[in-house]
Design a protein around this nucleic acid. Structure first.
Length: 495
RNA sequence: GAGGCUGUAGCUCAGUCGGUAGAGCAUCUGCCUUUUAAGCAGGUGGUCGAUGGUUCGAGUCCAUCCAGCCUCACCA
């Protein structure tokens, strides 16, 4: 144990010997930093508050000391004087940055103009035994805060998120926004009469997406179970069951690589509405997201990365074939598979010989079109081979009624008119099983019970999936999914 | 899975040609009753990610491993 840790344990013992409990039981808080400061009026008679928080800076002088404590809303300065606290003042010597204290006193404004609390009593609520990487900072005249050498090591920040949250207020803010995003969506769907449901995370047959699952084992049933990769097939069973609109905000689990856009567990909104199609869903989702952005930022126009992005409806709508033609000159509607492959190769794409037309189109799109779509864009009408759960296009053969929303070069949602023809659905599943036999581990699995449900009859329906983590990244301007997940997956810590 | 970069004090980082390990902040001691990147003076603090190798001598060169980041591949 190093000197800093030893030192704090010595102080802990001294506190106990002095008769103070270094781990208090409760504190009756009557004020919070932010409101105390904003509501302070110089002409009013002094007000008293009890406030609790963590010490984040200290300036001890001989017979008086200043410190800042941080509570849930922000920071406030404390002023402690020996001639007020008397023998209690000696305890200040045993306080450290990181300790959590409760303080009672009058609010006043210092000579330098900072609203502060003049303490006449304090208690220790939790003695901190580890040094906190707090950092010097200065508020410049225009109100901007300059921080010196902030705690920035990503590995430490993710592994010890509690420390990150204490010392980096911006991080705390991201997760408050994340909560507001989820709450807004839930409220938006609830007030329109859609039912929030819960479906199994442990599934005997996984489905609803193309991905490799995590597996686990149920001891009592002695059976293999999968962690869900999507909730789609269960939610559509509920549409069969007669609910008009259902949604679920839930964790999905995919056993794939990790990078700045992928975490093995992530949060997905899935939403299904009976008697609607994908056109209806386009209108719905652009309205919902525009309202969400307005709610979060008080405007629909926000800076993201290098761009300013405007979420105000109506968003640009393009077909996949139109977008590809515009950005590459390739006409996928009049080009057969071999010619398509040649065209893709001419554009510099490397393709596996097994790649079919759908895969080639998808590759062309994600390589040459998607990165260029900065403003919210609805891209519609996808090849049927890429979308085994979507309904055939009512006009274009070989296509399905599906759309994605691309913002800042990234997909943020995926939606389609749901396939409700059980015979077609069975054929699509069988095609997927063929792919699986040829070694595609991510092909969809045939779900016999889901087919049985469709055979009873499912009304036409529109479905939507929104990756909440990526949406949060977008709306909080974060570059990595790890910055919007409190405890991202990490390799075990070496000791 | 492939390539590149990184790992030095609690935090943020220097460390030259291979020659006794440094700074700022934090921390400690003393002084200081409206300070605020408080100040002044003086200190403490290191398994240089791990293991092995080359060398008279390794933070520095080499190999292997661990962890993180980035790019690519894979992937809704």
């Amino acid at each position: 144990m190093n000197e800093l840790l030893k030192r704090r344990r010595v102080e802990l013992d001294e506190l106990k010997q002095s008769g103070m409990n270094p781990y208090g039981y409760e504190y009756d808080v009557t004020g919070y930093s932010k409101s105390i400061i904003t509501e302070f009026r110089d002409d009013d008679p002094p007000k008293r508050f009890r406030i609790a928080g963590r010490i984040i800076s200290m300036r001890k002088m001989g017979k008086a000391s200043f410190m800042h404590i941080q509570d849930r809303d922000g920071r406030i300065q404390l002023y402690l004087r020996k001639d007020v606290l008397h023998e209690r003042y000696a305890v200040i010597k045993l306080l450290d940055i990181g300790d959590i204290i409760g303080v009672e006193g009058e609010v006043f404004r210092t000579k330098m103009g900072e609203v502060s609390i003049k303490a006449d009593a304090f208690e220790i609520l939790a003695k901190s035994l580890r040094p906190l990487p707090v950092v010097k900072e200065r508020t410049t005249e225009d109100g901007a805060i300059t921080r010196y050498d902030p705690f920035s090591d990503k590995e430490l920040r993710y592994r010890q998120r509690y420390v990150d949250l204490i010392v980096n207020p911006d991080v705390r803010d991201v997760f408050i926004k994340r909560a507001r995003i989820i709450k807004f969506i839930r409220n938006y769907l609830d007030t329109r009469g859609y039912l929030e449901v819960e479906t199994p995370a442990l599934q005997p047959v996984y489905g609803g997406a193309a991905a490799r699952p995590f597996t686990t084992h149920h001891n009592a049933l002695d059976m293999k179970l999968y962690l869900r990769i999507a909730d789609e097939l269960y939610l559509k069973r509920l549409i069969v069951g007669g609910y008009d609109g259902v949604y679920e905000i839930a964790k999905d689990f995919r056993n794939e690589g990790m990078d700045r856009n992928h975490n093995p567990e992530f949060t997905m909104l899935e939403f299904y509405v009976a008697y609607k199609d994908y056109k209806w869903m386009m209108d719905f989702v652009e309205r919902m997201i525009a309202d969400l952005v307005q709610h979060l930022h008080q405007t629909t126009e926000i800076p993201i990365g290098m761009h300013t992005i405007d979420f105000r409806p109506r968003w640009k709508r393009v077909t996949m074939s139109g977008a590809i033609k515009e950005h590459t000159g390739i006409d996928i509607e009049t080009t057969d598979e071999d010619a398509l492959r040649d065209a893709a190769r001419q554009h510099g794409l490397e393709l596996e010989p097994s790649a079919g037309a759908g895969k080639i189109i998808d590759k062309i799109f994600s390589e040459f079109v998607e990165p260029k779509l900065m403003q919210p864009t609805i891209v519609m009408d996808y090849p049927v081979s890429m979308s085994p759960l979507a309904k055939p296009h009512r006009e274009k053969s070989g296509m399905v009624e599906r759309f994605e929303v691309i913002v800042n070069g990234q997909e943020i949602c995926n939606a389609f008119s749901e396939l409700n023809d059980p015979v077609d659905q069975r054929a699509r599943f069988e095609e997927q099983m063929n792919l699986r036999e040829r070694g595609d581990e991510e092909a969809h699995v045939l779900d016999e019970d889901y087919l049985r449900a469709l055979e009873y009859g499912m009304p036409p329906a529109a479905g939507l999936g929104v990756g909440i983590d990526r949406l949060t990244m977008l709306l909080t301007n974060q570059e990595s999914i790890r910055d919007v997940i409190l405890f991202p997956q990490m390799r075990p810590e070496g000791r």
